[in-house]
Structure formats: structure tokens, C-alpha cells
């Protein structure tokens, strides 16, 4: 299908994008790569009055080393994130997971920031943002603010972004030495969304896990940190200990049932994939 008519504004700065959002009101939408938005428009699930294209805003295209973190502009593509040497070195979990998103053609066009702002609970990259305690740099008519991942994802396809705000960049804290990571994505067909996904990063010393981050994809309305697993993994040094910790993955979650999987099966998958992700990350 063809999208309903809309006006098109190509922003060249963040200020221009914000001004266009303010002018456009609630019916304005930000266009990054369009790989989530265009299917929505073509299916006429949404019909914005104006699209504000931020794909070539210089500041939003930058990927820079910011000391203890990487600053990844919201319009940096998934493909660029996947192949960036900086990301590989300091946020390997993000680089690895970017390669699990959709397919090559979609990764070439889709953006990291777009995926985060779209906040599809089945999206892979929001889970990494949660696992790595990323911070979202947001610009609006009253200036800029920074929102932690745990406060950014609010509900299904809903974030802390107001209608007149744009996500400028994601601040990705560097993992530092001693960390290893893995992402497990369960789906039935190539390029499909995750039925369940698990991102794990663990810090190990002499074969014992000292610290762990585990986040779940598609186990609720937002990415979920499996805090029970994280706590139980501290001190784990055997596959039995990892399995015991992973069995807590679905604690406190109430995942949806749909044609791909019912809620109970998702809970089962969360535990299995958490075990696999932690084992692969830790080498234990």
C-alpha cells in the first residue's frame, strides 16, 4: 500500500528538527532510516501530517569516544554500529546484537536511535540499551535532557520522549576490561523478530563470575533487566550455578501470548536462552 499524504521536512540541525516538531504538533513524526516507520505508514497504522527527516543531521550522524562512554548519534545506522571499531572495542554486545537485527538491507538503512525510540518490545537494540545502562540524550523546545534506559522505556512502543522531542544520541557506557558478552535471539524464520531474546554481559575473574547484566527482549511491554539472575550469577563458577541463576529469568515477568508463542513458552525460552547466553559469554 501507499502511505497517506504527509509533508516532508529535511532537518539539517537538531534545532531545526525540534522547531519542525513544535510546529507540526502531535501529528508530526521523526524519520530516521524509516525501516520501522515506513511499514507502519504503508499499512496505514499511522498517518502523520509531517515527517521530519533527521537522517543527515550532522550531530546525529556522529559516533564518538566520550571518555567513559561512546556517544552514538541517533541517525547512525545499524550497519555502521555493527562494523564500528569503537563499538566493537568498547561495547561489543551492541556490535554483536546489531548483526542480529533484521537483514543486511534493513541494517543499511535502519538506525540505532530509531530502533530505541520506536521501542518495539521485540526489538533487539532496546534490550542492549537496557543491559548496558545507556543514557538517551534528548532535545526539545526547552533544551536538552538525559534519561536513563530504565526510565526511557515506558510501555509498548512508548518512551519518555515527548511529542516535541527528538532523540539526539545514545550514550553507551564502556564495558571495560574483563567483560564478555553474548546475545541469544530465538525466532523461527530468517530476519524475523525475536520471539524471545536475551542479552548477557558478565565480568569474570579466574573462572568465576563477579558481576553480570542480563536483559530480556519481548518478555513484556519494555526491555526487562533480569535482576534476580544478575544477583544469582555473582560468584557462579559452574554450569550448574549458571543454570540455577538462569532459571529465575522469567521471575516477575508476564510476557504476551501471540501466534508465535504463548506466555508460558516465552518464560521457558527466557530461562533456556539466559543459560545459553551466560554460558557463551562466560565460557563456563
Amino acid at each position: 500500500m501507499i502511505p497517506a499524504s504527509f509533508d516532508y521536512v529535511k532537518a539539517s540541525t537538531v534545532d531545526e528538527a525540534v522547531a519542525a516538531l513544535v510546529k507540526g504538533g502531535e501529528d508530526a513524526k521523526v524519520l530516521g532510516g524509516g525501516q520501522s516507520l515506513l511499514p507502519v505508514l504503508r499499512l496505514r497504522l499511522n498517518a502523520p501530517s509531517v515527517l521530519i527527516d533527521v537522517s543527515e543531521v550532522g550531530e546525529m550522524r556522529a559516533l564518538t569516544d566520550d571518555g567513559d562512554a561512546l556517544l552514538i548519534g541517533a541517525s547512525v545506522t545499524t550497519y555502521e554500529v555493527m562494523h564500528s571499531e569503537l563499538v566493537k572495542e568498547h561495547a561489543g554486545l551492541l556490535s554483536l546484537t546489531a548483526g542480529a537485527v533484521a537483514d543486511p538491507a534493513i541494517r543499511h538503512k535502519g538506525t540505532f536511535g530509531g530502533s530505541v525510540a520506536h521501542a518495539d518490545p521485540a526489538g533487539d537494540l532496546p534490550t542492549v540499551a537496557a543491559a548496558l545502562d545507556c543514557e538517551m540524550v534528548i532535545a526539545g523546545p526547552n533544551g536538552r535532557r538525559t534519561v536513563a534506559a530504565k526510565d526511557f522505556f515506558v510501555d509498548y512502543f512508548t518512551t519518555a520522549l515527548a511529542a516535541d522531542e527528538v532523540l539526539v544520541a545514545v550514550r553507551v557506557p564502556k564495558l571495560g576490561a574483563g567483560w564478555s558478552y553474548n546475545y541469544q535471539k530465538f525466532n523461527r524464520t530468517a530476519q524475523a523478530w525475536a520471539i524471545v531474546g536475551v542479552a548477557a554481559a558478565v565480568k569474570s575473574e579466574n573462572g568465576t563470575i563477579t558481576e553480570a547484566r542480563v536483559a530480556l527482549t519481548n518478555m513484556g511491554a519494555t526491555p526487562i533487566r533480569a535482576t534476580g539472575v544478575e544477583a544469582a550469577l555473582a560468584g557462579a563458577s559452574s554450569s550448574d550455578a549458571i543454570a540455577a541463576a538462569a532459571s529465575k529469568a522469567a521471575d516477575g515477568t508476564s510476557p504476551t501470548s501471540d501466534l508465535h508463542a504463548d506466555s508460558e513458552y516465552r518464560k521457558h525460552l527466557a530461562a533456556v536462552l539466559t543459560r545459553r547466553a551466560v554460558e557463551a559469554a562466560s565460557g563456563i
Binding site: 516532508y8 529535511k10 524519520l31 524509516g34 525501516q35 515506513l38 511499514p39 504503508r42 527527516d53 537522517s55 550497519y79 543486511p104 538491507a105 534493513i106 543499511h108 538503512k109
Partner: peptide, 16 residues
């Protein structure tokens, strides 16, 4: 291909 990289042209606007 757009600038040498594959894209799905049903999911890209001409203005892009």
C-alpha cells in the same frame, strides 16, 4: 543499491 549498499526500495521514500 543506494550509494553501493543494498536497501529495500519499497521501504525507502524517493525523497530519502
Amino acid at each position: 543499491l543506494v550509494d553501493g549498499r543494498s536497501v529495500k526500495s519499497c521501504s525507502v521514500l524517493a525523497v530519502q
